[in-house]
Each structure stands twice: as structure tokens, then as C-alpha cells.
């Protein structure tokens, strides 16, 4: 049913109307723990964009050319997570050899990404929504950018409120969740523009 969706619609839809973090809650764990500083958030966000875009492409190919012909769709959880883990490992090794600067900036975030549920979530959504190859790539890319935007915004806001007086029980995760709720409210303003589900 989503065969006719334009790649551009999927791309913008996954950034704004269906933001993977704010409307599907994926990647909350690292979102809450890493968003303390803008610099680290940028690093993690960039790594997420890259890994998400490529793994959604890889998983689409594996799913449609390997699992479906063999009738092994039910193994997709294991296969997807292995593809993601293997890819992350590979990228880490390549980056380490090729560029020290990039490794210093992104290297430490890569292992964290394997267990980031947003990455696996994108691959699973792609299967459920029955995207084409091109749309899957743009969905992965858009979701990554959406996640990046959300974590940068959160890091910025958290920096602003670092000196504020917050009720005792709300310090830390509590206030972060409330801010995330407000951001989700703001992003709901986009809903209705494009429907990608």
C-alpha cells in the first residue's frame, strides 16, 4: 500500500511527522543518557544517521532477497540484529584505520549504537510498512536526521536549564522526560502534513 509513496514524502515524513524518537519513542535510552552535552550529542547523532541509513538498506536487501525466498521471515529479528552488529563492527574497524580524527569523534559511540533500539526499529518498521528499496533508504536516512535533530535540541535545552531550580524528585530523568513531552507536542504540529504509516 505504500508502494506509491514518494521518496521525498517518506524522507520528510520520517523527520517531522513520524519522528522516530518523539512519536515512536525509539532510542530513548541513549537519548536520555547522552543528551547532557551538545558535543557528544552531535557525535552520536551523526553516527546514528549513518548507521541507520545504511543498515535499513542492507536489511531490506537481506529480507527481500534472502529471507522471503527461503521462507525464513520469522528469523528476521536475529538476522537484522546480526547485520547491524556486523556492520557497526566493520565501520568501527575501517574508521580506526582510515581516520584518527573521525575515530576519536565517532568511535566511542559506535558500540552504543548496536543496542540503540531505534536502529532495529527502523528496520522492523520498514518491513511492516512494506517500503520499496528506495523508500527504505530514505526512511532510514530521514529517521536518523529526525533523531539527530531531537537529541541536539534536547542537549541545547538541557544546557539552558542546567542552572534552573528544579523540584527535587524531577531532577535528571524526570525533567528530561517532561521536556521530551513538550518537544513531542511541538512536533505534533507537523502531523497531518504527510502520512507515512
Amino acid at each position: 500500500m505504500n508502494g506509491e509513496l514518494l521518496p521525498a514524502a517518506v524522507f520528510f515524513g520520517s523527520i517531522f511527522t513520524g519522528n522516530i524518537l518523539l512519536s515512536n519513542y525509539l532510542g530513548m535510552c541513549s537519548f536520555l543518557s547522552v543528551s547532557k552535552e551538545i558535543k557528544t550529542s552531535t557525535g552520536l547523532g551523526a553516527a546514528v544517521i549513518f548507521v541507520m541509513a545504511v543498515t535499513s538498506l542492507l536489511n531490506w536487501i537481506v529480507y527481500h532477497y534472502l529471507l522471503i525466498p527461503l521462507g525464513l521471515e520469522y528469523l528476521r529479528f536475529i538476522v537484522f540484529i546480526v547485520v547491524i552488529a556486523a556492520f557497526v563492527q566493520l565501520v568501527e574497524m575501517i574508521i580506526e584505520r582510515v581516520s584518527e580524527g573521525l575515530y576519536a569523534a565517532l568511535g566511542i559511540f559506535l558500540p552504543l549504537i548496536t543496542v540503540n533500539c531505534a536502529i532495529l526499529g527502523v528496520s522492523l518498521f520498514m518491513v511492516i510498512r512494506d517500503y520499496s528499496l528506495v523508500n527504505s533508504f530514505f526512511f532510514g536516512l530521514g529517521s536518523g536526521i529526525g533523531w539527530f535533530l531531537a537529541i541536539i535540541a534536547m542537549a541545547g535545552i538541557r544546557k539552558k536549564i542546567s542552572g534552573a531550580k528544579i523540584p527535587k524528585g524531577l531532577e535528571g530523568p524526570g525533567i528530561t522526560l517532561i521536556i521530551a513531552g513538550m518537544m513531542a507536542l511541538a512536533f505534533m504540529g507537523f502531523s497531518g502534513m504527510i502520512n507515512i504509516t
Binding site: L22, S23, N24, Y25, P167, K168, G169, L170, P173, G174, I175, L177, I178, A180, G181, M182, A184, L185, M188
Partner: peptide, 24 residues
């Protein structure tokens, strides 16, 4: 709003607030 995304964030935040407040 409660069944939509922002509601989830708010309810969890309030829950954490109440529990942490009691623990102190």
C-alpha cells in the same frame, strides 16, 4: 493527549517524580 506520544512522556515523568519524592 494521553493516548498520544506526549502523554506518555508526561505520565512517566510524573510517576518518577512521585516515586523519587517518596524515596527521599
Amino acid at each position: 493527549i494521553m493516548v498520544m506520544a506526549p502523554g506518555a512522556f508526561f505520565v512517566l515523568a510524573i510517576f518518577i517524580w512521585v516515586v523519587k519524592g517518596r524515596m527521599e
